[in-house]
């Protein structure tokens, strides 16, 4: 469903993605793993075209995304949940959801506010609160809910478990599993295996902006040396 091939990306003169290639199959949850600074966020951004690759292709649903403006990419059905969350702090929860709202899309669930409040009960109670009054975990739920309002077919989750309490991490696991059953394809990034093990079907490991390993979680279990070499404990 999503294919990166030979992607090179730069910040100024520093090369961050180096001939990066990997694929994500439809209907699967794929974990993009790598240490601090491995290039996970940059990968996500260059899929969304928030960072434009100097070379290489990003194919999604039969189209090359490179060079399209981000709003076009989103309109094709890619939903992006950034690492820093970037919720609109001056806006209420309901208004944040409104920003994300897009028309229904063929072949994807059409999310309503009520459905999202069912998925994230904490948000329901806080619907009139402003973004800045929310806790870290609530903000994380809000970013996911906001992106779901765009009825994506493919979800990019950048470090969804970062900096949130264990109970909420468990809730995230449930949510991602449910999204998968609803037919969403998910690419999520993490620094370590814990969260990925709970939700992912396949993993892609990157280091220095290059793919080092791709395979199923079960296969990775056979190769502890790879895990030790490229992942944080």
């Amino acid at each position: 469903m999503l294919d990166l091939s030979g992607v090179n990306a730069f910040y100024g003169k520093a090369q961050v993605l180096n001939d990066l290639s990997f694929s994500v199959a439809a209907g699967q949850v794929t974990a993009l793993l790598g240490r601090n600074g491995a290039g996970k966020t940059t990968t996500m951004k260059s899929i969304m075209q928030l960072v434009v690759a100097a070379q290489g292709q990003v194919q999604f649903a039969g189209q090359n995304l490179v060079g399209k403006p981000p709003h076009r990419v989103a309109k094709l059905g890619l939903g992006y949940v950034p690492e820093e969350r970037r919720i609109f702090t001056d806006l209420t929860v309901l208004e944040n959801l409104e920003v994300g709202r897009q028309p229904p899309r063929d072949g994807a669930v059409t999310w309503t506010q009520d459905m999202l409040f069912e998925l994230f009960p904490n948000l329901a109670e806080r619907r009139s609160n402003r973004g800045r009054e929310m806790s870290g975990g609530e903000q994380q739920m809000l970013t996911i809910a906001r992106t779901l309002m765009g009825n994506p077919r493919f979800l990019l989750l950048d470090e969804p478990s970062e900096g949130i309490a264990p109970v909420i991490v468990e809730q995230m696991v449930r949510v991602i599993k449910q999204l998968k059953t609803e037919g969403l394809t998910v690419l999520l990034s993490e620094q370590n295996l814990h969260f990925a093990q709970a939700v992912a079907d396949t993993v892609v490991i990157i280091e220095g902006g290059t793919e080092k390993y791709a395979g199923t979680l079960t296969d990775l279990a056979q190769h502890p040396e790879i895990r030790d070499a490229y992942l944080a404990v």
Partner: peptide, 22 residues
């Protein structure tokens, strides 16, 4: 909705774009 988008864009217009708003 226009107002909501305006206020959102005032804070972070790149994110508004990434959510599909032209």
């Amino acid at each position: 909705r226009m107002g909501v988008l305006v206020r959102a864009a005032t804070q972070d217009r790149e994110m508004v774009g990434a959510l599909g708003v032209n």
